[in-house]
Amino acid sequence: MTLPTAAPRASLQRSDALLARRTPVAKIVFLALFTTSALFTRDVAALGFALVVTFAVAPLFGITPWGLLRRGWPALLGAATVVLSLALFAADRSGTVLVDFGPIVITSTVLGNALSLALRLLAIALPSILVFSTTDPTDLADSLIQHARVSPRFAIGALAAFRLVGLLGDEWRMIAMARRARGIDAGRNPVRWFTLFASTAFGLLVGAIRRGTRLAVAMDARGFDSGLPRTVARPMPWRPADWLLVAAGALLAAAIQLIAHR
């Protein structure tokens, strides 16, 4: 299994694109408004509008439209599956028959339904990629603490655990090699493949929990649970531009609903 973690970068620079450097909570509110509105519609025009907006604002997040497509490959795969499964098995096969080939009967209704589901999937997934791939996890935790009143113990605790994701990939590869060294491989037997996978995952989980337990002790040793009010070393002001981003999210959400109910 290949994990989507890049080799560690030496210096963690933040993106300075216009929208990428907005406060994370503002970006997430924008995203929630925009995509939740898309989630509640099946209208092809409204969803098409949402997608056009997504690609249009991508450069403001420092991502080219092509880069967005590349990062969005799981979503494209999902959209393709939706279209395929509906083309073969939709219950509602009314409308004009467009293709009739063996078990495949594609009518205008089927095509419309498949298109709207696929578009909705993309309209939900791609904006999330814009927001999350341009948000630094540390900034997200800081912003959640300062702007969303999330408990610092939980936000920082989750952040510390998230840092371990990069380590999990290496750990997985080491455990997999250690299994082979012990004389265990799956060959072409799917049952053995599954048990090997499960045992590797179990070893990974044991290691991760132990590391987490030690990390918790180290955090307590540095006063994480001291009961004193925790200060913020990285104050993050909420600027007018953040309000503008939230307002833009609300306007886009309204626009999607207006187009859908035109």
Partner: peptide, 12 residues
């Protein structure tokens, strides 16, 4: 390094 100082309430 700042983490421990935040925990015990040092100002930024």
């Amino acid at each position: 390094v700042a983490f421990g100082l935040e925990n015990i309430g040092w100002s930024a």
